[in-house]
Design a protein around this nucleic acid. Sequence first.
DNA 1: GCGACGAGACGTCACGAATC
DNA 2: GATTCGTGACGTCTCGTCGC
Length: 256
Amino acid sequence: METVVDSQQDGSASDCVTDREAIQNQSTHSPVSTVTQIHYLHSVPRKILNELSSDTPGVPKIEEEKSEEEVTPSNIATMAVPTSIYQTSTGQYIAIAQGGAIQIANPGSDGVQGLQTFTMTNSGTPQPGATIVQYATQSGDGTQQFFVPGSQVVVQAATGDMPTYQIRTPTSSLPQGVVMAASPGSLHSPQQLADEVTRKREHRLMKNREAARECRKKKKEYVKCLENRVAVLENQNKTLIEELKALKDLYCHKTE
DNA sequence: GCGACGAGACGTCACGAATC
DNA sequence: GATTCGTGACGTCTCGTCGC
């Protein structure tokens, strides 16, 4: 009589863990809701910015509105020196440059995703004292314009998938959620800010790289385990068939 | 030798689930 | 609610094989 070799004896088959039984369909849509203040989509710019960043993938870059002759992509380190840097209570950095560019960095997310630049111009102002913020979308859809009363305080009005920003006139009572830096620029230089964002991004990428490696390893082991189990069950099946056949023969001999 | 092709490994992004 | 983790999907690279 044959001995049935079960992989559970060596413990490998019993260690078969079902990773994810059902592979769910993953939709790539990003919900868009209408917000009355300045807003941008989180999911869209990331890929677009990566496409825009040419030779060094992984290095976040800010695409500013450029003049005809100036095509050099500006990254964080080379952007205009901000005159005011604010930090919201959520840790977000908002810098307003001398040229009127508003830069928003979201340290909670990766560098590319969380960086936005708005350019302020004063042309065609329909309201007295108002400033038009030109929001250049990275998708190439054109620019959206927002009217800004007076000057330059950017307020994060909402967070989540659809963060919104309000630009308000600074008053004695700051809007809730906004922390003004003691002296503009003293919190972090743009370089430090960029370094921090880059560092966090690289850390996240490194962790994800390792996780992906681990996940693949796990998946390979799981597949191996399943193949092993198939082999064992086939072997078991074959043995049982032979056993059945032998019993049948024995029964036939006895009845004869 | 060389281009085409498939397989496997890898990095990254996106997103849901789990955890804090 | 924010952060971290796990993983599917996608694109890219490398390597081996095959036909020419």
